[in-house]
Design a protein around this nucleic acid. Structure first.
Lengths: 330, 330
DNA sequence: GGGCAGGATTGGATCGTTCAAGTTGCTGGA
DNA sequence: TCCAGCAACTTGAACGATCCAATCCTGCCC
């Protein structure tokens, strides 16, 4: 292994002091151009790279962003966060940050992980996913003035902090509008039990679209936990109603896929539109509402670096529009 | 924010020196029990956590493991590495290591990322995925004696370094044996073009199983790039052969899914078995060969910590058996 | 009571970087 | 000629941990 190249090595090689090298790196404008170039050549020649640990000890900044990685669950919905993570890593890298992962099984444990990450690794900031009403994690971070951005709105206080989210209601509204335009009136919705921010939002889009078209949503709504089996069960239940729907919008691809299987088993076909545009939807030809995850990740990094690099900026919010992806099943 | 708790704070609080606190943490056995306890109480009371950056600067070790995260591709096969990553993060955490992500679009760029990660963050080790014949990455790392473990065999030199892999041949052999036991003889295989370690291995299992049962594999094999469309096209082609197969084993779930769709479109049904047991397979009821990814990740961490903590150990290898997951389609 | 061995504890140096406070050399105005 | 003012660069100290070498106890033996 080649021996260590430190700032002192570069300094000797360029016949300047350590500090001048440091200035070339961190404040190039205060160094005379010819000196600057000599130092930069030395840096390239020697292959010098700043040691983050040493820099971090002095500045207290680590250029590290922490992101939680969820325990493998469903596999269908999990892929959404995975795709988000991919985008996040890429964008963070080009902004000069790296991503560190952590796990936590619940909010309390996640909060205690924050303390660990902050004091041991001096993390610069967090990207928090899957926020819900009265999230204790964001409260903890905000209280300590630790920079963070959420992917998901703070449902209670819209302006509380910086966040990026996808307008789920706009997605379900567009899906519903598409089905209305295709001549359907009794468009059903299979969503999650009321109370979750994301779930209520997605239901609201469908609800408003129907009302806007003069259709009474009553009797066209169903609530269930997420899952393929749950989707199938709920679809069967809806088929047995007095006036069953002639098309379906679902709050997730799992639900949509279950519904699709139940319909096929019952010998019925009707358009079904899922949510999240997971690989599963693409594979089976299910239409779905696609979240711009790469974009969302990039904006998260933007907002976070804003908080980190800039002086105390006001929190900013970004709401992205999802896109309806039509496939042969609808 | 509470003010910083350093080793000196703890030392003052416990009325001992910094070194004694350090000893309590790093070499508890050389400290008198009562002193040790007093220090430990101070650590808990003050909520002290060792600053990694400072420790790292002195010891040169960061307790950080780097893992590459692939650009989002297919979405089906990508999920395999994602699940692996989840397991890796969890196991690493309980072994006292954290996972740092990096991206790279090709091997050369990946190698230059190594240099960056090593000199800037003092990474302790790497987990490399998707090795192939004559992998330049492992050569680069080995040359510099940087600890690493691969998930995937070094196909050229089986004992070259520590690795964990899943016995793909055993998987396809089991799948083929299952179909043979169900009475099938002309069992086809859709795999990738010869030349890739993983692909050839999976084909070999099917091949050996057929030979073992006295079936001539000739005319039952097909090669194609990975993908749903490719799988469909290849299955159609095989149906047109003089003696088409009556069952299929595929090198991936993408291929299997494509084959399944082509067969359904052609009005035929036959058992199809995929590989990797992705969420898509589970969702559509496709039988598939499941890799024990959580287990593989855990073993990777084991081997890597062995290399890091122990004195120069010999490389170790772990070959795990996959499991055939039968679903209603086969 | 003094000397000694052995382990527990202490203080100082160090890792590589940046911050703060110098020093040098040049320009220009009185 | 003198010195203020500035730009360009240098030097010493600090971040928080660990390593090393020196010192302090303690108990034990003669």
């Amino acid at each position: 292994m080649a021996e260590k190249v430190t700032i002192a090595t570069v300094a000797r090689h360029a016949r300047v002091s350590r500090q001048t090298v440091s200035n070339v790196i961190n404040a190039p404008h205060i160094v005379r151009p010819e000196t600057r170039q000599r130092v930069q050549e030395a840096i390239v020649t020697l292959g010098y790279r700043a040691n983050q640990a040493a820099r971090q000890m002095r500045t207290g900044r680590s250029r590290l962003i922490a992101v939680r990685i969820e325990p493998t669950r469903d596999g269908i919905n999990g892929s959404v966060l995975d795709r988000f993570l991919h985008g996040l890593t890429e964008t963070a890298e080009s902004a000069g940050y790296r991503v560190m992962l952590y796990t936590a099984t619940d909010d309390d444990r996640e909060i205690s992980a924050y303390g660990d990450l902050l004091s041991a690794y001096d993390l610069d900031g967090f990207v928090i996913t899957g926020t819900d009403h009265g999230d204790p994690r964001t409260a903890w971070l905000a209280e300590r003035e630790i920079p963070f951005v959420t992917f998901g709105r703070p449902w209670d206080h819209p302006q509380a902090h910086s966040w990026v989210d996808v307008d789920g209601a706009a997605g379900t509204r567009e899906a519903t509008a598409h089905l209305l335009a295709a001549g359907h009136l009794r468009i059903g919705f299979i969503g999650w039990p009321a109370g979750s921010g994301v779930g209520d939002d997605r239901r609201a889009g469908w609800h408003r679209a129907l009302l806007g078209a003069g259709v009474d949503p009553d009797g066209l709504d169903a609530e269930t936990e997420d899952g393929i089996a749950e989707g199938a069960r709920t679809a069967r239940e809806m088929l047995g109603r007095p006036a069953p729907p002639t098309a379906l919008v679902c709050a997730s691809d799992s639900l949509a896929l279950g519904a699709l299987q139940a319909l096929r088993a019952a010998g019925t076909t009707m358009p079904v539109i899922g949510f999240d545009d997971t690989p599963v939807a693409a594979a089976v030809g299910l239409s779905s509402i696609s979240q711009p995850l790469g974009d969302a990740a990039a904006r998260c990094v933007d907002l976070l670096t804003d908080l980190l690099d800039g002086p105390h900026r006001d929190p900013r919010q970004v709401l992205l529009r999802p896109a309806l992806v039509l496939r042969h099943l609808a």
